[in-house]
């Protein structure tokens, strides 16, 4: 009887036992949370590929990129909708995706395929203060730290490597790659050793419509 009850309980909780939870905390050298930090898991085993036709948006809103950092799985197509009523000229020199795209008022170009992993830094040749990033990762398991510096994953149990990336982080990337065995509930804190590069968030601050004109 006891054996049957145990089997029933195991069957009931089987779906839960197939998911491992990982909580990641990211703090800078001062102990402050690093909002927007990108964390992702890779594995030597094959991971699910991106679904064909997966789309993401990197918008242009009030002469800024929105979001500031967009994380996509390799093979995702990214649209540049341009919510502003003015022209933008978006470009990248990053090896993962060099491109340029003219965005006119009321004209939406075809999305671009991001099929190489890496960090793609975006600029606008009309508005020189605009700066954005597309982080292309070769995994479906990625997240960004919230305002408290926390990111949470629910992934199948197994052996992974946890990665941390952010354009402002100066630490050696090798120190930001961590092998992990995930089976139940794991927590990890990244404490950065080097100070972050300046955030310059004031460039993102909303001023008035005549800010930054030429």
């Amino acid at each position: 009887m006891t054996y049957r009850i145990c089997l029933t309980l195991l069957a009931l909780f089987c779906p839960l036992s197939n998911a491992a939870q990982l909580d990641v905390s990211v703090v800078d050298d001062q102990g402050s949370p690093v909002k927007g930090a990108v964390v992702y898991l890779t594995s030597s085993s094959p991971l699910p590929a991106v679904k064909p036709g997966t789309m993401a948006d990197m918008d242009q809103v009030k002469k800024q990129f929105k979001p500031h950092i967009l994380v996509v799985q390799k093979g995702t197509q990214v649209r540049f909708p341009n919510s502003d009523s003015i022209q933008h000229h978006v470009y990248s020199f990053s090896p993962a995706k060099p491109f340029e795209l003219q965005l006119y008022k009321d004209h939406h170009p075809d999305p671009l395929m991001f099929d190489q992993q890496g960090q793609v830094e975006l600029g606008c040749n009309v508005h020189d203060w605009m700066l954005g990033y597309i982080m292309v990762v070769d995994t479906p398991y990625f997240a960004q730290a919230n305002a408290q510096g926390l990111a949470t994953f629910d992934v199948p149990p197994g052996r992974y490597t946890l990665h941390l990336r952010h354009p402002r982080i100066q630490d050696d990337p090798k120190s930001l790659d961590l092998p992990l065995l995930l089976d139940d509930h794991t927590a990890h804190t990244f404490s950065l050793q080097e100070p972050l590069l300046p955030g310059l968030d004031e460039f993102e601050e909303q001023t008035d419509e005549f800010s930054g004109y030429e």
Partner: peptide, 13 residues
Amino acid sequence: LYSPGRQRRSPWS
């Protein structure tokens, strides 16, 4: 010649 500050991580352009 011009140098946008944000691309140098500086507040000054």
